[in-house]
Computed example of a mutant assay.
Amino acid sequence: MTLDQLPPLRDTLAEHGLLAKKSFGQHFLLDLNITRKIARLAQVGEGDHVIEVGPGPGGLTRALLETGARVTAVEADPRFAPLLEELSAASGGALTLRLEDALTTDEAAVAAGAPAHIVSNLPYNVGTPLLIKWLTGAFTPASMTLMFQKEVADRIAAAPGTEAYGRLSVLAQATSHAQVVMDVPARAFTPPPKVASAVARLTPREDRPEPVRLTALQQVTAAAFGQRRKMLRSSLKALGGEALCLAAGLSPEARAETIDVPGFLALADAYRIRS
């Protein structure tokens, strides 16, 4: 059996008696028109290596395999192993399955030193922790094309001074070129979630902060946005307060939500020097 001979996913799910689990934050994306569009937005193709987290029954996986990409699927729910193994056979071995928790996956080992793209309809309950792991960890994806709850996707690309702007915005934009590239209505999923979804695409910046600078950035953003309604002199008190702000060329009376990414990088540099 080849990819184009596979039965519709709804039939496969019914045959195996599988339903989405709330505990895993699962919402299946079965519409091939949508999954194929996501694969196009990911800009992957023949010979590219894609890491997909939370493939579930393999809706997006099928679309990625159709591009000619090699896919490593990381799935925590063993119920989907038989479906994904069937998909691997139909793809001629282009799909490799890893039954494990993506939060502990060593993506660098999976990529084996070669570029790898991450393309996923992320489980809602671990989407943000996974993104922070990929933004700040030792492994830098060649690109990330990820579906989140729409409010999370909006936070990734938010501008300073907007309600959605926060720590995730700074970490994403300091390390990547980030944009929301597609909205996905709740009705596209089985079962439909209570919120809308969106796809964000992130590609690494050439001036991505080095690890020690990135560590400092995580510390200052955690403190600043942990008390985002307070002035920086108060929210950053434990890290240097007013003196730290002045060293970074920022007003101690400013609030975190008004500071742009270069401003936070200046705070991170000042903190590194002081600590």
Rank of each mutant, 00 (worst) to 15 (best):
G241P: 03
G93C: 01
S176R: 15
A172I: 01
L146F: 06
E52P: 01
R213W: 13
V126G: 07
K133M: 09
T140H: 05
R228N: 14
R98V: 05
W134N: 10
P211C: 14
G166M: 08
R98P: 09
P55Q: 05
A248W: 09
D31S: 14
V180L: 13
P192D: 03
R155M: 12
L3S: 02
L97W: 00
V71A: 05
E86L: 07
L99P: 05
D207Y: 11
A200N: 05
C245P: 15
A198H: 08
T136S: 12
A158P: 11
I38Y: 13
P141Q: 12
E15Y: 10
V181Y: 14
L267S: 03
P193W: 10
Q218E: 15
A111G: 01
I156F: 11
T215M: 13
F189Q: 07
L41P: 02
L214S: 00
S176Y: 15
T35I: 09
D77W: 04
G113W: 01
A178R: 12
A268I: 07
P82G: 11
I259Q: 13
L103F: 05
K133H: 08
A42E: 07
M231H: 03
V53P: 06
A94P: 08
L83I: 10
A153L: 12
L135P: 11
V126N: 06
L246I: 07
L3G: 02
P191R: 08
F264L: 07
T203L: 03
V71C: 01
A174H: 05
R208M: 00
G113S: 00
H177Y: 09
E75H: 02
N33K: 13
I51N: 04
L131C: 08
V53G: 00
T221F: 08
C245H: 11
D101Y: 02
A89L: 15
G59N: 01
R36W: 04
L29W: 01
E253K: 15
E15L: 12
T190F: 09
T72G: 04
G127F: 11
P8N: 06
A223I: 14
G56N: 01
S169G: 06
R205G: 07
Q227E: 14
P193R: 05
I156R: 09
L267E: 03
L130D: 15
Q173D: 10
T203K: 12
T96S: 10
Y124E: 11
F24G: 10
P211F: 14
L29N: 00
V110I: 08
I132V: 15
A247F: 09
P185I: 12
P57F: 04
L103T: 02
T258D: 12
I118T: 14
G59M: 10
F148E: 07
W134H: 04
D11S: 14
G241H: 02
H49L: 15
H49F: 11
V126M: 08
R255D: 10
M182C: 13
L202Q: 06
K21H: 02
D31T: 13
L97V: 01
